[in-house]
Nucleic acid binder design. Structure first.
Length: 1172
RNA sequence: GCGCAUGUGGCGUAAUUGGUAGCCGUGCCAGACUUAGGAUCUGGUGCCGCAAGGCGUGGGGGUUCGAGUCCCUCCAUGCGCACCA
């Protein structure tokens, strides 16, 4: 091959890699594993621009490097395929989002392939694939059936909580230790009361504890998108996607209780190797603040009691981080949504308060934010009593208090809180000072908010420093039972339902107003077909349009949580190893009673098969009949702890769908007959699982053939499904696990795969996911860990945020003016050729734009206006000889408009091309040019902006690949600067990188295309150059400093060219170093030198420091820290010898001016510095 | 307002982690080869100065024999959070 023909080479090797599945990995236990993951993209219709691959290239280099170092690297890719844009497109065109998505994915794949990324595509996942979202739904069901146990500090089956309710009921004490639920208003109840509740009542109570739950709450409602949004999907009061306004609305919604994990999400950040700024962002978002709750009793004055509900015992609870300022409280403020507002308002204040509350409720989030500085509020007319002084404290309503945070009420301390201060000043309320600032302070001017100073006017707190005062105040508050220490979080529960079509259906149906999950073996619940992707006329989500989309209850009565095949696999997969061992132990050493009972059960004496010591869930059952799903337990003596343990165990087993009967060991030994009879009776009452299974399978088939579950009624009743779908982040919250085992139909991921691959070792993606995806991602991982389904509780050990590549937009400057025509156009004059039609149209519009000025005129528009206007007049005169018209001079204006960067080179517009392609309606458009010293040119303005279609500044990787090749693109993107830095795309430097590859080529081939590589031993200089490179590149990749490797490659090639090096040994090692960065050219040259296997199977060369050792070093000699000269001296010289040589030096002598240096600093191999 | 980053030639950037500031690449200047160059090659290029030399890593101060690097302070830019009690 004569020249470096990149397009041929790249095609050749991409084909080779694909055909030979070079990047396919398996769970090879002989090698250490490494998991490198990119955040998967949402396949948008616009395709990839050059910014997207930045992170992909970096992670690809890292993955390739790890492979060269003997690691078994998992490096997969997939698509976050559910999302709004495809659905918006569907609404406009009627095209099914699945089709749009498929097309976009194909386009993405094509683009990704061209870059030469080493993904194992056999592991691809798509969140919109039913085989994938089946498991997203499955995890949702797990969330639904779990609650957060604050005692064990993890998620547990909700049945454990039910057990508590059944046995001891629910009390404040239980809430304090076990559930810590502050948002709900579940009243205490006894165990007996619980049992007397209806199913509906029980389920409603449980809903307050489930991790996936339905609740009425204020949500971000986006009318334009017709859906609710999570907090992180709202930026500055508008939707992140589309920028539509968002308002607050009280709605019944599915949510995930992420707040239960707030503390762990916060504290576990410490064990992650993520950037500090990203961790800080998450800390901010979680927003932990420690303080105390405090109750203010209400003053029950005559008229209050008379007219309203009896408020006698009622009190207002506030949250404060500054209990030390308690004596500075001069009023309380409630959020307008606070439940007590209505009750507290006195008749004379009623009208004003109601008006105010209505007003604030109707304000959108955006309006509220825009008005932050504007203070508003109303007095309710009621008073509370100060808990220590007994003074009356007025109660106000104000929208500066947020309903969703803390208790929705604050104790206002205007002297020491700027917001309270502003409120107090505005309404003329008191500002008692209770902290003496250590500096002069003018309380007339502003509040003193610092946590620093001495308490004054504060009774028992007087004289204490703030820190001590806080402590003392909390002690006193707790002693008098006025409140208790409490932690609040800014983080809110994540709204999970979306009133949209293109998402995972929530696997819930409603029966008698109660939400039930589908059976696990009924998943996936397929997305049904609808006629339109819009809400129904009554405002229901699009899924409500699906015809006959209802849940048909199967005839079998098997309970929830049942596992599918194979039937004997009933153990929790994560526990299997340890359970198996224990079970074997038990089997070998049966107790007396167990042996006795087994005599009657073994074989198929009772008509069915029993198993002994069989693992179910997290536990081992004594005897199991799998067909009837019956467990027989034989217990020892009962004592209290055992009852609890047994019950937990029973819950777990029941959750797997089994029935349990239990006997004491005494019963078994003494009254064996009776025990056997009971077992027989139980067996008879249970249906056979085999037959149930057949039914299930039949239903599965029906479902599949009819799509979307529109199978015929199997005889049971039918119930409506939930109509909202899951948010975009559902599928992306666990996808990293699915790559490990993407074809598994029995489990979301096999235990074997997850035990091998474990956490992501390196996760690369944009920082825009800092608060959304990355929090949910961690949350779901922790949840799955709690259930024992995966062996780690953080998804990604190390995370790198690649910077954004911004675009460089260009602008043109059209001028517009109005023109008045005095005579109506006539006949066929030549002037008719001049935009006759346009003029007519524009005459109606009153303005037109057919003149463009160069940047110069735009920059100094005022001074150029006059001359531009004259130019316009002149131009018009030529074309409109016979027409009677006049320009309305005042109307002339210039504006800035994006221009497609394809018509611009170095900010100079190709006016001809622009006119032909963009201004075909205005063929005579005039460009007013400027002088660049040589020519008249049209200069465009420019700006650095995000790349986007609408800004016409998108550069696609395809264009670059076509012009320079993928290897150049890869090297150049890395060369651009540090990975994490955001930077503008600029094509100027790309030539240099491309030239470097051509120069590399010349080390192998001469001008005639003859291979010039020679065998033999390399020279010392060649080895030195190479090993400098090996060291540098190895270190750079480990430090993710990819940008500095590129110059190292260039330097090495420059040096080897200089040395006229054609040595095969040197060049082979060089290619291996280069191959992670430029895999195609490396493969090609590797093969050209006679290698039969791919360079990806090579080993990264070992660095040998011996080659870098120098005999001598050119020491910089400085005097008083200023560099003066260099002297070449031996590396092994001692200080005395060096001093002698240095002092004898001519240049040094000159600078010393005859003086003797006071001190000589000598650092071996570094520097000599003299102080005079 | 709070928090986290970042600030080096015309531009993108580099600096062995306290030891010769400006590697590499672009751009620019000069030259070579060419009918030509948007090809290739060679040399130069931080600023001031004819030079000797001086100045120079956002500004100011400090620690040190020595500071782009460490400390203090101020300024600018970017990002995140923001009426969170």
């Amino acid at each position: 091959m004569k020249d470096y023909n990149f397009s041929e080479i790249e095609k050749k090797w991409q084909d080779y890699w694909r055909k030979n599945s070079i990047y396919k990995v398996t769970e090879d236990k002989s090698k250490p594993k490494y998991y490198v993951l990119d955040m998967f993209p949402y396949p948008s219709g616009a395709g990839l621009h050059v910014g997207h691959p930045l992170g992909y290239i970096a992670s690809d280099i890292y993955a390739r490097f790890k492979r060269l170092n003997g690691f078994n690297v998992l490096h997969p890719m997939g698509y976050d395929a559910f999302g709004l844009p495809a659905e918006q497109y569907a609404i406009q065109t009627g095209q099914h989002p699945a089709i749009t998505t498929e097309q976009n994915i194909n386009r993405y794949r094509e683009q990704l392939d061209k870059i030469g990324l080493s993904y194992d595509w056999s592991r691809e996942v798509r969140t919109s694939d039913p085989a994938y979202y089946k498991w997203t739904q499955w995890i949702f069901i797990k969330l639904f059936h779990s609650f957060y146990n604050y005692e064990t500090n993890k998620a547990e089956p909700i049945n454990n909580l039910v057990y508590v309710f059944e046995n001891v009921g629910f009390s404040e004490e239980i809430n304090n230790t076990l559930t810590k639920n502050i948002e709900h208003d579940v009243k205490s109840f006894t165990a007996d009361e619980w049992k007397s509740f209806t199913e509906k009542q029980q389920q409603d109570i449980l809903m307050n504890f489930r991790l996936a739950f339905l609740a009425e709450s204020y949500v971000n409602w986006c009318p334009a998108l017709g859906t609710v949004l999570a907090n992180d999907e709202v930026k500055d009061g508008v939707s992140e996607r589309g920028g539509y306004p968002v308002e607050r609305k009280l709605m019944m919604q599915w949510s995930l209780r992420i707040t239960a994990y707030a503390d762990r999400l916060l504290s576990d950040l410490d064990k992650l190797d993520w950037t500090e700024s990203l961790k800080e962002t998450q800390r901010n978002w979680i927003g932990k603040s420690e303080g105390t709750s405090l109750k203010f009793r209400l003053l029950s004055s005559e008229f209050l009691v008379e007219n309203r509900n009896n408020l006698g015992g009622t009190s207002i609870e506030v949250f404060t981080t500054r209990p030390d300022t308690i004596f500075g409280v001069s009023f309380l403020t409630l959020a307008p949504e606070h439940e007590l507002v209505e009750k507290l308002t006195t008749p004379d204040r009623k009208e004003a308060v109601e008006q105010y509350v209505t007003l604030s409720k109707n304000r959108s989030e955006r309006e509220r934010m825009a008005d932050v500085k504007k203070i508003s509020g109303e007095f309710t007319g009621s008073y509370a009593i100060h808990p220590f002084t007994g003074k009356q404290i007025p109660i106000w309503v104000g929208d500066y208090v947020l309903a969703g945070y803390g208790t929705g009420a604050v104790m206002a301390v205007p002297a020491h809180d700027s917001r309270d201060y502003a409120f107090a000043k505005h309404f003329g309320l008191e500002c008692p000072v209770v902290i003496l600032p250590p500096v002069d302070w003018d309380f007339e001017d502003q509040s003193y908010d610092e946590k620093n100073g001495k308490a004054v006017n504060s009774d028992f707190l007087n004289g204490l420093e703030t820190k001590a005062a806080i402590k003392k105040a909390i002690e006193e508050i707790q002693k008098q039972e006025l409140g208790k220490g409490k932690t609040n979080y800014r983080l809110r529960d994540a709204i999970f339902g979306r009133q949209r079509y293109w998402g995972e259906p929530i696997p819930i149906y409603y029966k008698d107003g109660i939400a039930y999950t589908l059976e696990e073996n009924e998943l996936p619940l397929l997305l049904p077909e609808v006629d339109k992707y819009l809400p129904t006329e009554s405002g229901e989500p699009p899924l409500a349009r699906a015809k006959d989309w209802k849940y048909k209850k199967p005839l079998s009565n098997s309970s929830q949580g049942e596992r599918t095949n194979p039937a004997y696999q009933t153990a929790a997969s994560s526990m299997w190893d340890s359970l198996k061992q224990n079970a074997q132990e038990h089997r070998k050493n049966p107790t007396e009673d167990e042996s006795a009972l087994w005599q009657y059960l073994k074989g198929e004496q009772l008509g069915v098969k029993f198993r002994r010591q069989h693992a179910i869930g997290f536990y081992i059952a004594d005897f199991v009949c799998l067909d009837k799903m019956l467990v027989i337990e034989v217990d020892g003596k009962y004592h209290e702890q055992q009852i609890v343990d047994d019950q937990l165990r029973a819950n777990d087993i029941q959750q797997q769908g089994f029935e349990i009967i239990r006997f004491t060991n005494e019963e078994v030994l003494v009254d064996t007959e009776n025990v056997i009879e009971k077992i027989k009776a139980k067996l008879n009452s249970l249906p056979s699982r085999k037959s149930a299974q057949v039914l299930h399978n039949k239903e599965d088939l029906e479902r599949a053939s009819h799509k979307s579950g529109q199978g015929e009624d199997l005889g049971g009743a039918s119930y409506p499904y939930e109509h909202s779908t899951m948010p975009g982040w559902a599928g992306s919250s666990w996808y990293f696990l699915r790559y490990m085992d993407n074809k598994n139909t029995n489990d979301f991921v096999s235990k074997e795969a997850v035990d091998y691959w474990k956490q992501i070792d390196l996760y690369v993606g944009g920082s825009e996911h800092a608060t959304g995806h990355l929090l949910y991602f961690r949350f779901w991982t922790k949840f799955l860990f709690d259930l024992g389904l995966i062996p780690f509780d953080e998804p990604a050990k190390k995370l790198i945020n690649q910077g954004m590549i911004t675009g460089r937009s260009n602008f043109v400057y059209p001028i517009s003016f109005s023109i008045s025509l005095n005579v109506s156009p006539t006949g066929t004059d030549e002037e008719e050729n001049f935009r006759n039609k346009i003029l007519l149209e524009e005459q109606i519009a009153g303005e037109f734009e057919v003149f463009y000025v160069s940047e110069l005129y735009y920059k100094n528009w005022e001074s150029h206006k006059e001359s531009v206007l004259n130019r316009v007049k002149e131009e018009l005169k030529q074309h409109m000889i016979k027409r009677n018209y006049s320009i309305i001079e005042e109307s002339i204006r210039v504006r800035k408009m994006h221009v497609n960067i394809n018509y611009v080179l170095n900010d100079v517009l190709d006016t001809g091309a622009y006119k032909i392609n963009e201004l075909y309606n205005y063929p005579d458009a005039t460009f007013i040019l400027e002088d660049d010293g040589e020519n008249q040119i049209y200069r465009c303005g420019w700006e650095i902006e995000k790349m986007s279609k609408s800004k016409y500044n998108v550069v696609t990787p395809d264009d670059i690949v076509a012009d320079y090749g993928a290897d150049t693109l890869r090297l150049y993107e890395m060369f651009l600067g540090p990975l994490e830095q955001s930077k503008p795309w600029n094509t100027q430097g790309i030539e240099g990188v491309h030239r470097f590859l051509k120069k590399l080529w010349k080390l192998f081939y001469d001008a005639d295309g003859k291979l010039i590589v020679i065998e033999g031993e390399p020279s010392k200089k060649e080895l030195k150059s190479l090993h400098k490179l090996i060291k540098k590149v190895g270190e750079d990749i480990e430090n993710f400093s990819f940008n500095t490797s590129v110059p190292a490659f260039m330097i090495c090639v420059n040096e080897l060219t200089e040395l006229k090096c054609n040595n095969k040994k040197i060049l082979l090692d060089y290619l291996v170093c280069l191959s992670p960065y430029a895999p195609h050219v490396a493969e090609e040259l590797w093969e050209a030198m006679g290698n039969k296997t791919s360079i990806t199977k090579a080993y990264f060369p070992a660095f040998n420091p011996e080659y870098l050792i120098e005999d001598s070093f050119s020491y910089p000699i400085s005097i008083n820290g200023k560099h003066r000269t260099n002297i070449e001296m031996g590396m092994d010289m001692a200080q005395a010898e060096v001093e002698q040589i240095v002092l004898a030096d001519e240049v040094v002598q000159k600078w010393l001016e005859g003086k003797q240096p006071k001190k000589i600093i000598f650092v071996k191999g570094k520097i000599v510095n003299m102080v005079i």
